[in-house]
């Protein structure tokens, strides 16, 4: 086993950079730039253009690497590069976006092969401010497509919440 990594992907502003920062033991290395697109600017000041990187040191000295993909569509080519060889995928979806379920579809389609070979967990962020769509709507979509992945509310600012997602991912990898 060469590099041990988990990849965070998902919609713009969903909290990928924040989630990695919440659990990484080093300050997150980010390629965030000041947002220039009007669309991004409306929502936040910076956006990731290449990747985020954080890490955790395991008891035996090995490093668990945490990568975040850029959220904007124009950087899609980075997604697969980052996911290659990863243990599993954390998909974060911003529930306050205009079409969060549509966003989820996009990520699932994009990573379908990877998910089939490994596994994934879906975290829905910003549910505190935007409770709709609810979890059931996400599950209904997934069930129609025969996808049995966990969908859990997450607050990327809380490490407990992010840890919960990774626990679910590890359980899926081992038992799911």
């Amino acid at each position: 086993m060469s590099e041990i990594k988990i990849v965070f992907t998902g919609s713009m502003g969903a909290g990928k950079t924040t989630a990695i920062a919440a659990i990484s033991e080093i300050p997150v290395i980010s390629t965030d730039v000041r947002a220039t697109d009007a669309d991004v600017l409306q929502r936040k000041e910076t956006t990731t253009v290449a990747m985020d990187y954080g890490e955790l040191t395991l008891e035996d000295g090995q490093k668990l690497r945490l990568y975040g993909t850029p959220g904007q569509q124009r950087f899609e080519y980075m997604w697969k590069i980052l996911a290659r060889g990863a243990l599993g995928l954390v998909i974060l979806i911003d529930n306050s976006g205009s079409d969060p379920i549509g966003e989820l579809v996009r990520y699932i389609d994009n990573f379908r092969e990877f998910i089939n070979e490994t596994s994934a967990v879906i975290g829905i962020s910003h549910m505190d401010t935007n409770p709709e769509p609810d979890l059931q709507s996400y599950y209904s979509y997934l069930q129609e497509r025969g996808i049995e992945l966990p969908v859990l509310p997450v607050d990327a600012r809380s490490s407990d919440s992010v840890v919960m997602l990774i626990q679910a991912l590890l359980a899926m990898l081992e038992f799911g």
Partner: peptide
């Protein structure tokens, strides 16, 4: 799921918790 993988998962969990 190999034994090596399982023990890796345990290690990650332990670190996270």
């Amino acid at each position: 799921v190999s034994d090596a993988k399982r023990s890796l998962f345990r290690g990650i969990l332990k670190r996270l918790l």
